[in-house]
Amino acid sequence: MIRKTFILAAAAATVAFAGAAEARDQIRIVGSSTVFPFSTAVAETFGKTTSFKTPVVESTGSGGGMKLFCAGIGENHPDITNASRRIKKSEFETCTKNGIGITEVKVGFDGIVLANSKAAPQLSLTKGQIFLALAKKVPMNGKLVDNPYKNWSDIDASLPKTKIEVLGPPPTSGTRDAFVELAMEAGCKEVKGAKELGLAKKACHEIREDGAFIEAGENDNLIVQKLEANPAAVGIFGFSFLDQNADKIQGAKVNGVEPEFELIASGKYGVSRSLYFYVKQQHVGVIPGIKEYVTEFTAEKAWGPDGYLVEKGLIPLPDADRAKIAASSRNLAPLSM
């Protein structure tokens, strides 16, 4: 009796493992949580309108996705990784070392907005003011001092007389990476005397830790809720959350430009970044459907100005870029760095 049970269990285990070893017929995608809503929308449409299985999309963050993607070739490794920044040189080298050929596809833009509750007046900030409000160390009277600004009005008399209270993403987030680079680093350059004191590039990335900047976690919905409850607070998050909650919150002007769809798309709004995905060339033709997935993502009905990704908050590339990238990605042009 016991022996019989044992044999049965062994048989069941063998079946399970053999099943696992079967060829994978489903695309696996990993990577950025910012690209996740777009990638999943394409995956769903792709699964519905073609005979292929719906791809599985994991939200691992840009860095985590790259690590999985570049680990090797074979069924246990993902076919595509999403990224809210360009692949780094070091990551590219890991990939090349493991024999992986990559095709890069730039899919669109994502605006990063500073927003507050509709109950408070709309803010209009320059990048320099953003830097002064949030940097750990700021120049003052020719010296570098710990950030002394408590109220927005301390920075500039035109700003409201409320406490600086900014809710933003934690350092592990891609949104934070992009924000410090696009707003803080650029703001650094606008501040007089910063360069002379050694504040340039990476040195401008440090954010104050005295309670004026509050790390609110990766969940942007939570930030929106907190802004609604506290009209004095300002939040930093992706444009799609402003788009979905326009009845409750308003975006701040940055260098005089409103965070609006058209202005981000045309590049006039200064705090926006590009979104990408990367395809493993060795898997094309082995895992069914990869080429078709790329075609679906780069179709006008998806990423065009009237496409379904725009509904989800993606900001499309200019027409000429779209046409060029669509053509090169369908030929799976290899990336070189």
């Binding site: 696992a20 995956a43 699964g47 999309v57 939200s59």
Partner: peptide
């Protein structure tokens, strides 16, 4: 282990995503 994922198909066995 990759279970935090967007999966549209209802799993049919213990080896499906």
């Amino acid at each position: 282990i990759g279970m935090v994922a967007f999966i549209v198909d209802i799993p049919g066995s213990i080896t499906d995503a």
